[in-house]
Simulated scan of single mutants.
Amino acid sequence: MSFAESGSIECATAEETQAWGEKLGRNLKAGDVVIMDGPLGAGKTTLTQGIARGMQVKGRVTSPTFVIAREHRSLVGGPALVHVDAYRMLGEDGATSADPLGELDALDLDTELDEAVVIAEWGGGLVEQISERYLLITLDRESAVVDDPESQARIIHWRWFSTP
């Protein structure tokens, strides 16, 4: 399955979100940068868990909030997955870095970024500067909850962007 340049899908459960992420993960390749945006609890890490399953990487995928970045090596000779909390990479004043590649490099990851898939939670305004092409994924849980407060649904919007 290949993915369209842009689109949206409603996933009713966390399991559906992971299943969609798994399909996406099978289509990502070394050098791809994925920026995830959405409020706390929107499902960014849940989606990343599915992507990791599709990429067949090792290690438990958890929120990178307390570690800033976590690297997951491939089990099948594919690219590694670098899962980053870009918000934590910002300065104390919340300003974006003038050198986002340097910020990522300072994390002393074992993998070269062009040989991995980088997934950055809260990465808007920072991480897209490290690649000429990136996938922006926005997760919306609020729309479904308005209609049904018990809903676990989320609407996932995605679009590939190229920088000039």
Rank of each mutant, 00 (worst) to 15 (best):
D108Y: 05
K23M: 04
L104E: 09
Q56D: 15
S63L: 07
V57A: 10
L139P: 12
A120F: 11
L40N: 02
F161D: 13
V67L: 12
N27F: 01
K29E: 15
G91Q: 00
L139H: 02
Y87E: 07
P164V: 03
V118N: 09
V34G: 07
E150M: 07
G25I: 14
I68A: 02
A153R: 14
V84D: 14
S74C: 00
M55Q: 02
D110I: 07
Q152V: 04
G50D: 06
L104S: 01
V67K: 09
S63W: 13
V127A: 02
Y134E: 05
L28W: 11
V146K: 12
P64H: 11
T46M: 08
M55S: 09
I68C: 09
R26F: 01
L24H: 06
E92H: 07
D105H: 10
E71V: 12
G123E: 08
A80M: 10
L101F: 02
S151R: 07
T96K: 03
Q56A: 09
V146R: 06
E103H: 08
D85C: 08
G78D: 14
L109R: 01
T62F: 02
T45N: 14
E128T: 09
R133N: 05
R60Q: 11
T65P: 05
R26N: 04
M36C: 12
G78F: 11
E103N: 02
I156Y: 10
V34N: 10
Q56K: 13
A116V: 00
K29A: 15
S97V: 00
E128H: 03
A106C: 13
D140E: 01
A153Q: 14
A144N: 03
